[in-house]
């Protein structure tokens, strides 16, 4: 097939989706950037450019605190989810014949409403909730435990549940790709099971770990629903503050600034994380 028609056909077919998505990334972000340099008094937007929003956002201890906590919670969630998911991915890849069934079982809960799954955790962890009433009924505790809901712990637990398939699937794929002969070779050369895992299996799954971490970490920093429902005052994150600016507080320039700050923070942390893991991966061998 001549190269020219291949290129032009490919470009023509790929263009609609690329342009649609590309424009809807660039144009809204452009608007956010513009807004972040404008200011607002009551309803009127002052279009003169100023760093004022950035100065007041970065100078505000609450903003810094929420940004830091969003990254911290997202990191905890990522760590928890990946740690809990790895053995399952390993089990599906190496220890069972019914791979398709297990993969389906894992994805089914994920297709139910996210809002309702988070809500269900609120019902489980609440003061009069399932866990407290159940344990009291069994006589194991006498007073309801109050540390379960409305804090960081509740947010991390809920999100580790919500993101499970996003961690399991990429890690499973990278485990599945491992050439089984490499494992046999490691055994033949005298590696014990643990050594074989840490020196062969784990390093080969680093790409899977990276992609599942990113796909969890990035949306989690900007999660709105979970902190709003189960986070209480101690579990609020940056998205909740952004929503306030676009909603009740009606300060769009500040909201835009916060959105951009959140995005830049996510980008920096994500790139740093990828570099760190690549470095660690290259050191193992």
């Amino acid at each position: 097939m001549p190269l020219r028609t291949d290129t032009s056909k490919g470009l023509a077919l790929g263009a609609p989706a690329t342009l649609y998505v590309g424009l809807l990334v660039v144009a809204p972000l452009g608007m956010l950037v513009a807004y972040s340099f404008w200011t607002q008094t009551y309803v009127a937007i002052d279009h003169s450019l100023t760093w004022e929003n950035y100065r007041s956002a970065i100078g505000d201890p609450l903003v810094r605190h929420l940004l830091f906590r969003s990254v911290w919670i997202a990191a905890l969630v990522t760590l928890m989810t990946v740690l809990l998911a790895y053995p399952i991915a390993y089990f599906i890849a190496f220890r069972t014949e019914r791979k398709a069934l297990w993969l389906l079982l894992i994805t089914i809960p994920f297709w139910t409403s996210y809002l309702l799954r988070v809500f269900a955790w609120k019902l489980i962890l609440g003061f009069n909730g399932l866990l407290n009433s159940g344990l009291q009924g069994l006589g194991l505790i006498h007073e309801p435990m109050t540390w379960l809901l409305y804090n960081e712990f509740a947010v991390v637990l809920t999100l580790a549940h919500a993101w499970a398939p996003f961690a399991i699937l990429p890690i499973y794929v990278s485990l599945q790709k491992i050439d089984r002969r490499l494992l046999e070779a490691a055994t033949d050369l005298g590696s014990g099971k643990l050594e074989r895992f840490f020196r062969v299996t784990l390093p080969l799954t680093i790409p899977g770990i990276i992609s599942s971490s990113l796909i969890i970490f990035i949306p989690t920093v900007g999660d709105y629903v979970t902190p709003a429902l189960v986070g209480g005052a101690d579990g609020k994150m940056i998205a909740n503050l952004i929503q306030v600016q676009f909603g009740p507080a009606n300060d769009w320039p500040l909201g835009a600034t916060l959105s951009l700050l959140a995005m830049v923070t996510v980008g920096i942390v994500a790139v740093g994380y990828v570099l760190l893991l690549r470095f660690l991966g290259s050191r193992i061998r």
Binding site: L24, G222, S259, A262
Partner: peptide, 15 residues
């Protein structure tokens, strides 16, 4: 897939 939802939502509202 990799842009936080709140940022997509707020920026689209503005646009």
């Amino acid at each position: 897939l990799v842009i936080p939802g709140i940022i997509v939502a707020s920026s689209m509202l503005v646009l």
